[in-house]
Design a protein around this nucleic acid. Sequence first.
DNA 1: CTAATTTTTTTACGCGCGTAAAACTTTGAT
DNA 2: ATCAAAGTTTTACGCGCGTAAAAAAATTAG
Lengths: 333, 333
Amino acid sequence: MEELASVSGISRPTISKYFNEPGSVRPSTRAKIEAALELHDYRPNIYAMNQNRKLTKNVGVVVPLLSDPYFAEIARNLEQHCIAAGYRPTLFSSHGDPALEVEVLDTLRSLKPAGVLLAPLGRASDRAALEKFCDDVPTLIFDSSVDEIGLAFVGSDNFQFTAHITDYLCRTSEPPCFFEMKTPANPNAHRRRQSYLDAMESFGYTPDVVSIAGEGWGFEEIGRLGGHEAFENGRFSTNSILCSNDRLAIGLLTACYERGIRVGRTEDCRIRVAGQDGHPHSRYTCPPLTTISHNYEAVSQTAADALFTAIEGQVSPWKSTRLEGKLILRDSA
Amino acid sequence: MEELASVSGISRPTISKYFNEPGSVRPSTRAKIEAALELHDYRPNIYAMNQNRKLTKNVGVVVPLLSDPYFAEIARNLEQHCIAAGYRPTLFSSHGDPALEVEVLDTLRSLKPAGVLLAPLGRASDRAALEKFCDDVPTLIFDSSVDEIGLAFVGSDNFQFTAHITDYLCRTSEPPCFFEMKTPANPNAHRRRQSYLDAMESFGYTPDVVSIAGEGWGFEEIGRLGGHEAFENGRFSTNSILCSNDRLAIGLLTACYERGIRVGRTEDCRIRVAGQDGHPHSRYTCPPLTTISHNYEAVSQTAADALFTAIEGQVSPWKSTRLEGKLILRDSA
DNA sequence: CTAATTTTTTTACGCGCGTAAAACTTTGAT
DNA sequence: ATCAAAGTTTTACGCGCGTAAAAAAATTAG
């Protein structure tokens, strides 16, 4: 930086100021600096930079499970928004493990991030650890809400999701049963069940929740095994099955295939299956899965913007933003 | 650190040494430090740490596309190995974009990593940029090889992959045609095609390569559209189709479904379809996809170990390690 | 027990930058 | 042209640690 100063004829502190905020120096000064930058390709040392800065430009992005394409997609979007806003995103995955989630938070602390975009594991999360972290670091919670912690919450409106797709299913054939995990990892699952119950009641139908056993994040396998068991015991009371999420639905479709049960909305099909999430893979199941999709772009945009305004000084009370999903009609229901 | 020194009764430089390598101090000293650490939960400032260290403990992990569960899985494994070996992994994705890949490399440079585990985009990669990066930073290339750059290459043996599954298909029914993208992003695709040609020749069969159009990383959609076109023009000369990779196969299966073509190895099925990669989703296609799986664990273990030995001073000539895959027999072929 | 060796302490410097304060210069408005 | 405001330079310090060198202490070998 010293060299760049002598080459450009600008003092080092001014150059430091330039790197902090290029707009904060006079245009003529900025031009001189950028001209010198062209010739000498200097890169500031990020370690020295961040050592004395009160606030780094780092942003942590934490998702529960990166190998789930849904989270991978959200993470990709968030990453781009951070870069566009001049922040340096770093990606972390809890890999479905609460202990790892705490470790990630610990690692994040030492990065002294300006802010964090955090999708918690949910039920399994260490609440106390999350809360403590949110006290120390400006954190925006997304995807699944855990109390009213952090700066704000941004996610999908699970009530709208399930109400909407339940409504569709009721209007087009028999009212659906609801296929879910007994002990879901994600708190959104409870909202979806409740929304299903409410919607069924408002239509005057008797709800039927089929809860299946299974722990962990291998939802497809849980759905497949649970599906087999449910069929064997005749637990599906109607021809329509609304799954709590797409991955469960994918497993259920495999179970149907293995049992020779035709799925779809045509006359020759025994049942209909619908999912929820708009999973990237849902287009390629057989039959293609009817589902209700997150507004990926809007969720990540809103979440990122909310974090940045908070970082940049805007204090606002805790707020929950829940965005509506869009029904995607395909052959499965 | 100063405080910790006074509390533990050990001098600051010795504590610094401890954090650099806990085993380098006398056991009694180490015990004292760790006892003090229990009480005062001090965390070294990573920025100050890395500023003067010749070598940081950072390791970059770069994959071409994180939303592809195959890469997500590899990345997860690599991450764990890094942590286990005492390094701090940071995950990056090129998101299928060569320009982003160069940007990632640039970001990585400023992290001054001890080493990098890099899976290049392949054909689209900026060779010159990759080579220059490898000159500056100890880099191990994995998954897809680009010349003989970096410390070494670790990946799967694509020749063995395709030879093995071609052999299986030939022995069990009609010899397969080969379904692939005309201009594949990944260099492994060329190896697989060549291996198919060699295998077919060694059996005395006439190979039949069906190359379909399509750019980018949306393999499923490319496979689906290409499949439709191939069926319409009668381009499949036998009842068996070996796909260049699983994602293409998933798309092809969807095309089959849409055309009402039954896939499987039973009498009533018109064709058989097989993939390659052992994609996490291949178990849940309809029918479940016969494929040949990467040895994920071995590839990542070998890659990580190779990088660490190189970092820790072992100089060895460039080497290519290619691990064999395992045939996974399912209903599709 | 003494000498040789290893480990630790003391002392001291510097990494590359952020940042503060005061003096100075440029710019824009009157 | 004159003055105030904004931007810039100079000077100086410190962040939290790594690291080097020399002195001191602890351990081991003989």
